[in-house]
Amino acid sequence: MGKVIIDGAIADNQWQRLESDALESGVPAQGKIIVPLAYWQENRDTLIARGDVAVWLAPGEEPKDLEDDLDSLPLVAIHFPAFKDGRGYSYARELRTRYGFKGEVRATGDVLRDQLFYMTRCGFNAFEVRADRNIEEALQGLKDFSITYQGDVNDPKPIYRRA
């Protein structure tokens, strides 16, 4: 079982993210799984009945596509095929501020230490750091700055409105 950063600490990764080709013969009988948006949309009722299921969004798939399902999801993953594709930052922020999603928002894929601080500010609270990188060291990335000018998901007040 791999490791994941959740709420600033390293934990065992309970969830398995599945690509669509791994789902051709259906979902595994057991275990917590994160399925692609399209698979969720096609098999929504069966998946809800199975339980232990979450959804991941690829770039181009927006939180709006999950708007009616968020209450039934414990976790939404936002996948970064490449760390330079920044759409996921806006998606995370929307999940938190527009849709008020309280569950886990997890970054998966090309997730690296030097992006974690920004990701946290946009509403991610869980990070599957890329497997070839040291997750302990990546923890440092959560603390790059103690000063921020803008408000963010964790504190919507910009610096000029803070006490």
């Binding site: 920044g86 930052y89 992006q115 920004y118 500010r121 946009c122 700055f145 610096i159």
Partner: peptide, 14 residues
């Protein structure tokens, strides 16, 4: 300038 400096959402624009 202050709003744009290390704005977390807009560091990886197209």
């Amino acid at each position: 300038r202050q709003w744009s400096t290390f704005n977390p959402e807009f560091a990886y624009l197209p």
